[in-house]
Write a protein that binds this DNA or RNA. Structure first.
Lengths: 155, 155
DNA sequence: TAGAACCTTCGAGTGCGCTCCAGGCAAGCG
DNA sequence: CGCTTGCCTGGAGCGCACTCGAAGGTTCTA
């Protein structure tokens, strides 16, 4: 249960390419504005994520300021990806809760990830379908659109 | 300029598979609730689409009720597809305006469709990227997740 | 030691895409 | 004739995901 190992690289293995201007583990104490610059989120949004329970506990300096770790950046990377899929923030909060609750939620998290993956796959299929519609429409315009348009077709 | 031909099937050729329970052209005067059932949108939403300029002019019965045509359904089919891509309603309104403005907007519409297509392609790429992240995470869980989770990795 | 630049919290505001309500009209039916 | 059903309009309200402002404390640079 205790977290002894903070040097392993496996922590990073799940959040895409690690950001270039990251500090090595051990000196990874970023201010909120540094994290904002790194992630593209605003400081406001980062604090809001914390308020709604989307972040793990963020370390604080002796004066109470947030100090983000590399692991926090990894988490934000994952959140960013999930956000791109259109996953509602509430669902991500649910996942964050499972992580906080510890090992016994392992199965639930696994299932949630798999369900999310299926959702993303379905979304991709949907978009490819839409792409086909657009392709047909664009061909239509390219080939004979001008003539057909004047006949009243809804282009 | 005059719209003589309403019997051609080419009108339909751009909006995916035609809905099964459609009436043949000529008897295509659907009430708002029929269209709601056919499209999955609510009557409220259909009226709202009209208010914001997303629909062409919808025909009315002698008592002022809306009567949608097959062409209107085609248009709603396209709108539905574009909505799936995440295109903002405002952009779709812009496209609708171009259609209303007539043939001379042909080029603009063509460009807009091509830009939209590129947007969809980019979105698909993004999702595939996310899918890869999820796949890695899921493998991780499946292979050694339980052990690593107890070491403190952010899964 | 001044001032800028950063941080904190709380709470209100914004933009989008609906979603719903109130109040009223018109048609069909027993 | 009254009742129900379906439709009309204009406008208010809602949920989401931020986004920003106010008021005040702290830390860095000259």
């Amino acid at each position: 249960m205790t977290v002894m190992d903070t040097t392993g690289t496996h922590v990073d293995s799940c959040a895409g390419p690690p950001h270039a201007d990251r500090r090595p583990d051990g000196q990874d104490r970023y201010t909120i504005s540094e994290v904002a610059a790194l992630t593209g989120l605003t400081a406001h949004t980062l604090r809001w994520y914390e308020r709604i329970g989307l972040m793990p506990h963020i370390d604080r300096s002796h004066t109470g300021q947030r100090r983000y770790s590399n692991r926090d950046l990894d988490w934000l990377g994952l959140v960013g990806k999930l956000r791109l899929t259109g996953m509602p923030v509430a669902d991500m909060v649910r996942y964050a809760e499972l992580v906080r609750e510890g090992d016994h939620t392992y199965g639930a998290r696994f299932e949630l990830l798999k369900a999310t993956r299926e959702g993303v796959r379905a979304r991709i299929a949907e978009l490819q379908d839409t792409l086909a519609v657009l392709d047909r429409k664009i061909d239509f315009y390219g080939d004979a659109g001008r003539a057909l348009a004047s006949e009243g077709a809804v282009l």
